[in-house]
Each structure stands twice: as structure tokens, then as C-alpha cells.
Design a protein around this nucleic acid. Structure first.
Lengths: 164, 164
DNA sequence: CGAATAAGGTTGACTTGTCCACCAAATCGG
DNA sequence: CCGATTTGGTGGACAAGTCAACCTTATTCG
């Protein structure tokens, strides 16, 4: 067995430096998205971003496109394209916002609600598997930890010794 | 103030259903990557994937391209392209693997090490900010939690009632 | 009140990541 | 030993996300 063998699960005998948390989270996100893509593809012909828009509209009725987009953390451009894809497929209706001419009012069509009803339980079950995979002390702090990391990731002014 | 106002930071007065963990992690990953991209761009003309390859080679000397690729969690195709970009820029040398004709042996050039020396501290400082943002009980379990989620995301057989 | 600024959506171009076919090398099993 | 299977890298096509310019609408400020 050669020295310095690296296994995928990090369970190698010799301690090695940990990967940066940013890379770990990136890898995790790619795995979760790949799994989500496979599940959504198995049950529909939606893309993952399209499913996400439907899913979050179903979680709560947004009072405008801006609130929905910001809640979902989508880029303006990507949100626009995904919403238009869903409108073109007949899963979403788009109308003018009653108070703000810049915004859109979005709602699911019956076909959109049907997709939500069909896929919702599947993806909820996967989410439950994620939660069940965690120990109680992990489950207790995971969301607050991710939230704090998110805020730390929004810092753009690294004035601490940066040669800007 | 209209009812059902949604704020970005989730600190709204009324409780609302939480976003699925998968979407939260996806959003977090995008924010972290955007910040990383900005930092890397400020200090070099590398892309984030290119920086990541250099960074992980610097963390430990891999015994072949396969071990490095798997450690980093890169797609085969993306890894190949990024390695070739780095070779073309003179930051990486690529040679034949001594034992396995399928694999490559990768090492940083002097220019590659110089980039690593210049950017390493910047990105390490950011990683430290992430760790410092977390409370002790969050820091204690974050890696094990992410690791468990990663394993749960590798499940491909959802035979529990799926209409396959 | 009007100019300046900011916010929201669209579109095209680009970056990053995925998928797949192909080929070569390694491994496995009869 | 040899055929079958698996693994690793390449390259093209495509999906997902980002960036920036532009236009419209709303807000801010003097």
C-alpha cells in the first residue's frame, strides 16, 4: 500500500489538513443538487431551478416577484429566465403587480400545483433524510451556523491588510 | 406595512416555513463562491476552479491526478479542463504517472507556488472569518454535520415508495 | 417639482459545472 | 491467458449561474 493514499471519505489513517470550509460546502452543494436533479428528473421534466421556483411559491404566497427572488437567492437574470420558462410551460401565471410597475405577480397554474403536489412529497422525504442523518446537537445548530456563514460570505470589504 | 412582508434575513415578525436545507446550502454555496471569486480576482487573474486546484495541491502532494480529483470532488471533465488551463498558463506541470498509465502526475511550477503564496493567506483569512463567525457549539459539529449530509446526498436508491 | 439615483426585469455573452461518447489502461474472473 | 468490465482523461454539447448593459419604474433629495 503506497504511503499518502487518499480516500474519498477522509478516513485515511494519517491525519491530513482539512479542506477549507468553502470547498467542503461547495462540494456538498454539488452533491445535493445532483441528487435533487436526479429526483426531479425521475418524476417530471423540470429542471432543478424550475422546481425550486415552484417549490418556494408553494411554501408561501409571495407578494411580488422581488420578494420571491430575494427569498430564493436567485440572480435577477436567472430568475427572469426561469420564471419565463415556467410561464412558457404553463406552470406559472405572470401578471402586473398592483402597486409597483417594476415587479411581477406570480402564481401557480393548476398544472403547476399538480407538479408541486406530485414532487413535493418526494423532495420533502429527501429533506427529512437529511435531517435524520444529523445528530441532535448537529440538528440544533445547523441552520444558525449556515446563516452565520452566509452573512460572513456577504462581506465585501476585506480592509484588513488587503492591498486594494 | 403590507402583510406577509418577507425580509432577506429571515427576521420577519411572523414565523414562516423554513426553506428546505438543500436550498439553504445551495444559496450559501453561491454566496461563498461569489465572495471567493471576488477575492481571487482582486489578487490574480485566476478563476475560482483554477485557484482551488492550486490550493489543494498545496495542501498536500497528491500521488496522482485521480486522488486529487476525488479529494476535490471535481467532475472528470471539469478537472481535465481546469488542469489543462493551469498547464497552459505555466502554473502546473503535468507528467505521466509512474505506475498507472491512465493517470497524470501534477505539480506546481514556481509560478504556481508564487500564486499559492500570494493568495493562500488571503483565502485562509477568509476561512478564519468563517470559523470565527460560528459559536463554539456550531464550530464543534459543523464538519461532521456537513459530512453526514454529503453521505445522505450520495444515496441514489430511493426505493421507499418511489414509482421507479 | 424635477433631476439624480436606485431598483427591477430583460437579454446577450460569458463562466462554471454536467453529461456523454470515445479511447486507452487497468482490473477482474473464468 | 484472454475476454469482459471498470477506471481515467479528453472533448463537445448542454445546463446552470454570473455579469453587464439597457430600459422602465420608483424613490430620494435639493
Amino acid at each position: 500500500m503506497p504511503q499518502n493514499r487518499i480516500t474519498d471519505d477522509g478516513q485515511s489513517d494519517r491525519p491530513r489538513r482539512e479542506l477549507p470550509l468553502s470547498l467542503v460546502i461547495h462540494q456538498l452543494s454539488l452533491k445535493i443538487d445532483a441528487q435533487g436533479r436526479a429526483l426531479v428528473a425521475r418524476h417530471s421534466d423540470l429542471t432543478l431551478p424550475q422546481w425550486r421556483v415552484i417549490r418556494v411559491i408553494g411554501l408561501e404566497a409571495p407578494d411580488g416577484s422581488t420578494a420571491l427572488r430575494k427569498l430564493m437567492g436567485f440572480d435577477k437574470s436567472q430568475f427572469s429566465k426561469t420564471v419565463n420558462q415556467l410561464r412558457a410551460r404553463g406552470l406559472l401565471t405572470v401578471s402586473a403587480h398592483p402597486e409597483d410597475g417594476r415587479q411581477l405577480q406570480l402564481s401557480l397554474t393548476e398544472a403547476g400545483r399538480a407538479v408541486l403536489d406530485r414532487l413535493g412529497p418526494v423532495l420533502d422525504a429527501r429533506n427529512d433524510l437529511f435531517l435524520q442523518a444529523l445528530a441532535p446537537e448537529e440538528l440544533k445548530v445547523i441552520r444558525s451556523a449556515l446563516s452565520k456563514l452566509g452573512r460572513a460570505a456577504e462581506i465585501t470589504d476585506f480592509s484588513k491588510g488587503d492591498d486594494e
